[in-house]
Design a protein around this nucleic acid. Structure first.
Lengths: 333, 333
DNA sequence: AACAAATTTGTAAGCGCTTACATTGAGGAG
DNA sequence: CTCCTCAATGTAAGCGCTTACAAATTTGTT
């Protein structure tokens, strides 16, 4: 593997000059530039990014922490962030935190040790204080899908309360009066916000909220099944079921079908997130769009603007609004 | 950010000693080790991975090229590879090639420029010659889901021909005589292999293969829909449809349903890959398991063994066998 | 107690780059 | 022709580590 030294020798110039043509930031005469470029080409020279980073204190890479490397939601997020950043010559280093405090922490430390120029975090398990300390530590950080008190400028979130409200409102508008709910784990902010929205919609419509009509799941498909089975036993005659995410909605659909319900004529189901596969379900799932694509894009633009001085083509916004995606699982009553 | 120099000063030892306790590879007395560790802790020292890499010529990171960052197939692959490697203290740097020769090439060059210790490639677009040159260039490389002639030792593949055979055989065993096929883009080896298996199963059963019974898709859902619509017009009375992947099977199911077919009583459908969402489809898709998980794991173990001298817990194998996953879309005739 | 061997620690030379600063050489002004 | 300016290039000091080798210290022997 050729080094800059060999290139400089082949071209008959100094190291510094080779560096200059590589980075294109200082004046180099046309003639020497040509010589250097020829030398590079003939040696098959490839700069050592590690050495560049060490010397320049810039890695041109941004760290991305996701909870999992699989699943539609994170797939979307990774794709989007990578797309925007790569277009601008920056690279993404992806790590997974698995919704575990220790592992998230390690993952973030790893990204820091790789000297990423910035971090984009979908961190669910680490504490607010840790995130605040991180921001204070000077490394540019943005947080996706989580609102940390004094860090408004760094957070990009969807209005989960509003989304939960919209889901239930949609059911109410379709004539449903008895609406069950399968929530996510309520210690998670997004889960409890969505449930709060559900309650608000109920109240606004003059319907009374009843504890027994909600089942607390864990955002995974299986808990959607469990939830449906449970609700069916304990709660009579509900005609609509709002689920706090699409995975659980899918599980609930399976359980409902097994119990002999036709969807949507006998039971309406509404999901949340609008992940890719919600379209593949049968019937196609009516859900709330979680603009993860837009958030990822925005986070990437924020980084470009704040870290690399590349102006964002769109104004930076921090709060995203969800919307109803009407498909086939919500029936009119 | 503290440096090794500050630690050495605080601990009252030399740089080298600090380095030694960090790496734990040379003898250091208990007392000095303690001093150094205390100094590290009190300074919140975090080694600069970039500098370590430059000096040691080891990055402890392996590059992973996938075609896309989203989708179940690649999600599985990334998760598995990361899991195995992280357990052994190695990190994964993920890039996407988007099935485009130029972009795959760039992605690989990026990984090389980051001085990854090894590369795990799901490369679909670059040439065999390029891959051979890469292997020759001394950087440890493994190739997933693609067989390159002289590179047996570096390739991990599923027996696609056999998988195609099994899919069609399953339909035949269930009593089907007229079987349609939606293939992937035939310039791709896996797609043509699967089709070859299909033909062999037909032949073995004494059924004649007919060009008009196959539609060439592109592995995406929409081409499954198109394929179904096309076949339905041009081909009469087929009772089973084998699709070269699950996405297309999903599309075909949608189109079939729209055309009024009941699955599986009127039309059986078989997919390929057994990606996560195949379980969410309704009816649940009968498919061929593509052991991407096992391949990813094996590739990671290969790297651990060949690059880091960590013995693989399982024997290294290069050819993986697919298997039928019986669910609900294949009906008996 | 004296010395060799074994163990622990220190010294300093890189790893492949970037960049502040110094040098060189043209071209223009007087 | 001399002096100055400015653009182009070179020099060399790091960036924060690892590691061969040398030096110092400890341990074991007799």
């Amino acid at each position: 593997m050729a080094t800059i030294y060999q290139v400089s020798e082949a071209a008959g110039v100094s190291l510094a000059t080779v560096s200059r043509v590589m980075n294109g930031n200082a004046k180099v005469s046309e003639r020497t530039r040509k010589k250097v470029e020829d030398a590079m080409a003939s040696l098959g020279y490839q700069p050592n990014a590690i050495a560049q980073s060490l010397a320049s204190n810039r890695t041109n890479s941004v760290g991305l922490l996701v909870s999992e490397l699989h699943g539609s939601y994170f797939g979307d997020l990774m794709s989007t962030v990578e797309h925007v950043l790569k277009q601008n010559g920056k690279h993404v280093i992806i790590t997974a935190g698995h919704v575990d405090e220790k592992r998230e922490h390690e993952a973030i430390e790893f990204l820091k040790s790789r000297r990423c120029d910035a971090l984009i975090l979908h961190a669910e398990a680490v504490s607010d204080d840790y995130l605040k300390a991180l921001v204070d530590s000077k490394i540019p950080v943005v947080v996706i899908n989580r609102k940390v008190d004094t860090l408004d400028e760094n957070c990009f979130v969807v209005d989960n309360e509003r989304g939960g409200y919209m889901a239930t409102k949609a059911a109410i508008d379709a004539g449903h009066k008895k609406i069950a709910y399968i929530s996510g784990p309520l210690f998670k902010k997004d889960a409890s916000d969505r449930l709060a929205g559900h309650k608000r919609a109920l109240q606004e419509a003059g319907l009374t909220f009843d504890e027994t009509s909600v089942f607390e799941g864990d955002f995974h498909e299986s808990s959607g099944q469990e939830g449906m089975q449970h609700l069916q036993k304990t709660l009579s005659d509900f005609t609509a079921l709002v689920c706090a995410n699409d995975e659980m909605a899918s599980g609930a659909m399976t359980a409902a079908r097994e119990a002999g319900f036709d969807i949507p004529s006998q039971l309406s189901i509404i999901g949340f997130d609008n992940v890719l596969f919600s379209r593949y379900l049968y019937p196609k799932l009516t859900t709330i769009n979680n603009p993860i694509h837009a958030m990822g894009e925005m986070a990437a633009y924020w980084v470009l603007q704040h870290v690399y001085d590349i102006k964002s083509p769109i104004p930076i916004e921090h709060l995203f609004v969800p919307e109803v995606v009407n498909r086939d699982t919500l029936g009119k009553l």
